[in-house]
C-alpha cells in the first residue's frame, strides 16, 4: 500500500505537534520515523491509523482519502508501544480478536479462525504460548503476540510505535532482523517510530527524520549519513561533534578553539556564505596523535575498545570530542593533538 501525507497539521492546545508534514511512502517500503521525543512522530503514526485526527491536511492510502474513514474500517495493523494486549484474554484470544469481531458475513468460521491463529502463532515462534495470559509471558514474547494480533486481519499496512523500546539489547537485535524478514515475506508496507538512530538506519529502506513537527529529511540511510540536509539532521545522526566555526577565504577557521583551519576543499558539504557556521565532524574524521613537547590541544577523557579501533573521548577547550584511534595509541589523561580531516558545515 502506498501512503501519501500532504500538508498535515495537528495542534494540541498551543503546541503544534505536526506542521504541514509531507511524506510519501511507496508500496512495500520499510520506513522509519526517527526523531527526538516531542518531534511529532507518534502523532503522525496515530493519524495514519485513524486514532488521532489532523487539524488540516490529508492522508491518502492507495490514493484514497482517509479523513472520513474510522480506524476500525482502515484495516491497518498497529503495534502499540507497550503492546496494549488485552489483559484478560489468552494469547490465542488476543490474536483471534480481529477475526472474531468481524460482521457475520465476513467472519471466518470458528475452525478457520483457530487454524489461522495457530498458523500465525507458529510463524511468530510462540505456538506453545497460546493458552497463557499476557502477564505470564516475557516482553519479547508480548511483542510477538502484539505483532501476531496486528497481522491476523491481514493488513497490508503495518504501523509500529517504538516496537523495540521496552526490550533488552539482545532480544531487540534478534527481533529486528526477524521483523525485517517478516516485512519482506508478507509483502507489507511498514512504518515504525523510533528515537534510536541505529535501529532506524539498520532496519529501514528510508528514514524520515522528524524535527519539531516537520520532516527534516526523508532519505535512504546512506544518503542521510552522507548528505544531511540541515544542521539538525547532521547533529542527530552519526555522533558528530558540533563546533562553532567561521568560513573565510579558502578555509574553515575554528578560533578561538585551538584547531588548525580546514581547507574549503575538505568540506563534505559546503555553504556558499561566508561567516559564522556550525561545523559537524564525525568520530572517524579526526586525525589524532599523542602530543609531542607541549603541542597538544586536547586531553583524553576516556578510552574504550570498539571493534577494530579504540573509541576515545577528548576534551577540546571545553567541547567533548569523540574520535577513533588505533588500539593502544592513547591513554587516559594523555595530552594529544587533534586535527579535523573533513567537516560538514551549515549556516549557524
Amino acid at each position: 500500500m502506498s501512503v501519501t501525507v500532504s500538508r498535515l497539521t495537528r495542534r494540541f492546545g498551543p503546541v503544534l505537534a505536526l506542521r504541514e508534514v509531507e511524506l510519501g511512502v511507496r508500496q512495500g517500503e520499510f520506513v522509519a520515523l526517527l526523531g527526538p521525543s516531542g518531534s511529532g512522530k507518534t502523532t503522525l503514526l496515530r493519524i495514519l491509523a485513524g486514532l488521532d485526527f489532523a487539524d488540516a491536511g490529508t492522508v491518502e492510502i492507495d490514493g484514497e482519502d482517509m479523513s472520513a474513514v474510522p480506524a476500525r474500517a482502515r484495516n491497518i495493523g498497529f503495534v502499540f508501544q507497550n503492546y496494549a494486549l488485552f489483559r484478560h484474554m489468552t494469547v490465542f484470544e488476543n490474536v483471534a480478536f480481529g477475526l472474531r469481531v468481524r460482521p457475520r458475513a465476513t467472519r471466518p468460521p470458528g475452525a478457520e479462525i483457530t487454524r489461522r491463529v495457530r498458523r500465525l502463532l507458529e510463524r511468530m515462534q510462540i505456538g506453545e504460548l497460546e493458552r497463557r495470559l499476557p502477564e505470564q509471558i516475557s516482553g519479547g514474547q508480548r511483542q510477538r503476540v502484539a505483532l501476531a494480533r496486528a497481522l491476523a486481519t491481514e493488513p497490508r499496512l503495518l504501523l509500529l510505535d517504538e516496537p523495540f523500546g521496552a526490550l533488552d539489547a539482545e532480544v531487540r537485535k534478534g527481533l529486528r532482523r526477524w521483523l525485517r524478514e517478516l516485512h519482506a515475506e508478507l509483502g507489507l508496507t511498514s512504518l515504525f517510530v523510533t528515537h534510536d538512530q541505529e535501529e532506524a538506519l539498520e532496519l529501514a529502506d528510508r528514514v524520515a527524520v522528524m524535527q519539531a513537527g516537520q520532516v527534516a529529511q526523508f532519505d535512504s540511510p546512506a544518503a542521510l549519513v552522507a548528505q544531511p540536509a540541515n544542521a539538525f539532521v547532521a547533529g542527530f545522526l552519526g555522533h558528530a561533534a558540533r563546533l562553532p566555526a567561521r568560513l573565510a577565504g579558502d578555509a574553515l577557521h575554528f578560533d578561538p578553539l585551538p584547531l588548525p583551519p580546514l581547507p574549503r576543499t575538505a568540506l563534505l558539504r559546503g555553504v556558499a556564505v561566508e561567516g559564522a557556521v556550525l561545523a559537524f565532524i564525525r568520530a572517524h574524521e579526526w586525525d589524532i596523535a599523542p602530543a609531542v613537547a607541549g603541542e597538544g590541544n586536547a586531553v583524553v577523557r576516556s578510552c574504550r575498545p570498539a571493534g577494530g579501533h579504540t573509541h576515545v573521548e577528548l576534551d577540546l577547550g571545553g567541547y567533548v570530542i569523540e574520535a577513533e584511534a588505533a588500539h593502544g595509541l592513547l591513554n587516559y589523561g594523555q595530552p594529544c593533538l587533534l586535527r579535523p580531516r573533513a567537516a560538514r558545515v551549515f549556516p549557524a
Partner: peptide, 21 residues
C-alpha cells in the same frame, strides 16, 4: 485507552470494544 485503541484498529465497533475489552 491503549486497549480500546487496539480494539478499534482491529476492526471492533464501539459496542464490541466495550463488551469484549
Amino acid at each position: 485507552r491503549a486497549a480500546e485503541e487496539a480494539a478499534a484498529t482491529l476492526g471492533a465497533s464501539g459496542w464490541q470494544t466495550f463488551r469484549r475489552v
